[in-house]
Design a protein around this nucleic acid. Structure first.
Lengths: 200, 200
DNA sequence: GTCTATACGGAGATAGAC
DNA sequence: GTCTATCTCCGTATAGAC
């Protein structure tokens, strides 16, 4: 295991990355200044520009780590020997901090993301997640757990959107339960679809 | 009709508001500088601070207009004499510019929104929309167009989240069709639920 | 009401000592 | 490698002339 996990321990490079990951989550890219990262990490300005060419490169390195972590966690939730609907529920209903937002999706509206180097780690996460969710839905359809009128890819995108949009509802109303609530609504739809499957 | 609609026409106050509405949509609040607004509107700095105490107040006034416009448009799409599912479809599948994002929801992740004066117009829109979508879903359930295992509020929040999250998918992959795609997925779920209703 | 000129702080980065 | 001092530019706002 790596002992260099906290914001205040490990090499300067590691502390910068950990601080950047934290601040990118809490404030986003544009709102996070190099000074913020230095203050949180307890590192001097010289170290930052020694290890990274600039703010953008630090953010990219941080986001690559976040993307990998999130991908592993999400795919893990969607894996297992249990029925596909159960796996979907485990992913959809996993506890989320609605007020913080998705560590990756949170950045979607920043210009830097739209144009520059931050795009890749962000898109990678969404791509990997979409593939897996689509596969699980397809499996549910094939095994008769969901009606075959459901298009797997579109349905997967709808479910991913529920999660991302749920964060937005939580932020807008400053109510951490709304994200979970939206996911529960989507889960209710899936269950109703599963229930209806065995009728005819 | 009001002739003062464009960015380059009307009084200075109106031009400032129109420019601010445009830039808040395209860049968000934090990224938009007073100078940006002045350049786009063709107005001088003095006029801005004559009509508004500062950037925040200008943004709030602009967002109040956007919120009202969006509320009227959305509620209108959800109104009519046709069946509730048809109204839901009209709202869900209305054309959207995925790359631009929701003019209101786009701001959810900005700190200023979380803490300050911009909160009210944003929350107002989401509140009004949620009420209406919930009502239409409840009507669909009561009239037998959707199964009564669907909780109307949670389902409404899920559908609103699909729209908001769809914008995020579009932004992340820089593909304007993904937002529509996610909405289509949600619509497919609703239709499958409606279809299953008449079976037993 | 509208403009230009000016002020001040902080963002982002560099220089160079240690 | 890490630090402090320094630099430049821009975001935000004020002052005061017209």
């Amino acid at each position: 295991m790596k002992p260099e996990t906290g914001t205040q321990h490990g090499s300067s490079r590691r502390r910068l990355l950990n601080a950047a990951k934290d601040l990118l989550w809490r404030q986003g890219y544009e709102k996070t200044s190099p000074q913020d990262v230095l203050t949180l990490s307890g590192v001097g300005k010289g170290s930052l520009y020694h290890h990274f060419p600039g703010k953008l490169d630090l953010a990219r390195a941080a986001l690559e780590e976040v993307s990998a972590e999130l991908t592993e966690k999400s795919l893990s939730l969607l894996s297992g020997d249990d029925p596909p609907l159960e796996r979907l529920r485990r992913w959809l209903m996993t506890p989320r901090d609605g007020l913080m937002g998705c560590r990756i999706g949170r950045l979607a509206n920043e210009s830097a993301v739209f144009e520059a180097a931050l795009h890749d780690p962000i898109a990678d996460y969404f791509r990997a997640l979409e593939q897996r969710v689509t596969a699980v839905i397809a499996e549910a359809v094939e095994t008769g757990h969901l009606p075959d009128s459901l298009p797997p890819v579109e349905t997967a995108r709808a479910l991913m959107s529920v999660v991302q949009g749920g964060y937005i509802l939580s932020r807008v109303h400053q109510d951490p339960t709304l994200c979970t609530n939206a996911c529960r609504g989507a889960m209710a739809m899936l269950e109703a679809l599963a229930g209806s499957r065995s009728a005819p």
